[in-house]
Design a protein around this nucleic acid. Structure first.
Lengths: 149, 149
DNA sequence: ATGTATGCAAAACATTTGCACCTGG
DNA sequence: CCAGGTGCAAATGTTTTGCATACAT
């Protein structure tokens, strides 16, 4: 039940917030933009404002419920925090995103931080490349490659 | 001489572009925002428009002369491309940025990409932590931590 | 009740574009 | 001369805010 997450985060349990969390869970770990979230909820018949999405997202992030990424540069994408840390590898053609976690890299980062006198808090690692999906290049040739509109 | 870089990139050698490159070189590898670049050039008495900065930056990036980063989320920062690849470790308190390159991590990334069927093109790795500078926490306690204004 | 959350519209920003003019080769 | 570059202002796209109203506890 999502209401528990909200309460634990010290947030009031409201309809918009619940709907937002539900959407995230039913999206199966996808990375969503504020815009797409809004569109989907509206299409689902919900009466929710874009501003509310943004406000909720900011709070969810502060509460550690979601993570914000800047894969493309323009709009940010949000992902529901389920489980431990992981990094991403995204296809520059179709925009597909895979998740992974590599112990070797994680450990090395600690060493590097120490070497430079930093106390490591966090990190971002994103690999960009071309995936091998049959329906990638050509059909979905958009996402990061193609610019807006 | 910077004019060579421009010519090699197939770009016309103009005053604004030269000034921009000069600023980058005299900034000692710092990461600059379009806004700060503009401000500095204006203060230096140059008559240059913000739009020109952005246009030049886009071309420079395409030409591989500069690299664009999104450390904070809002405005992007640009860095002059001098030498081989490297990643960053930035202080969440004072915003200080150190550069590093780790062969172990680089190699591991290739393996991971292969494991997921991706042909690796590029990557971004940024570590966030607290540096050990004496004048860090307190004085320069801004940068990433504090929000704008 | 009552402090928060929400929707809407307007504001704030960073970045891009249209256009007439200027400039480098 | 002429394609490409530039400044300015207006346009965009995204995210934030102000405010009166609605809601959770």
């Amino acid at each position: 039940m999502e209401s528990r997450n909200l309460r634990n985060a010290g947030l009031k349990v409201t309809v918009p917030r619940m709907k937002l969390l539900e959407l995230f869970e039913s999206s199966g770990g996808k990375h969503l933009t504020a815009e797409s979230i809004h569109r989907q909820l509206i299409e689902a018949g919900e009466d929710i404002g874009l501003a509310t999405i943004y406000r909720a997202l900011v709070q969810f992030e502060a509460a550690g419920l979601v993570t914000k990424h800047h894969f493309e540069g323009d709009h940010a994408v949000f992902e529901l925090e389920r489980g431990p840390h992981h990094d991403h590898i995204v296809c520059i053609h179709c925009g597909k995103v895979e998740e992974f976690c590599d112990e070797v890299i994680e450990a090395r980062q600690q060493e590097i931080a120490g070497k430079y006198g930093f106390r490591l808090h966090d990190h971002t690692l994103t690999l960009y490349g071309e995936c091998s999906d049959a329906d990638c290049t050509g059909k979905n040739a958009n996402a990061l490659t193609e610019k807006k509109k």
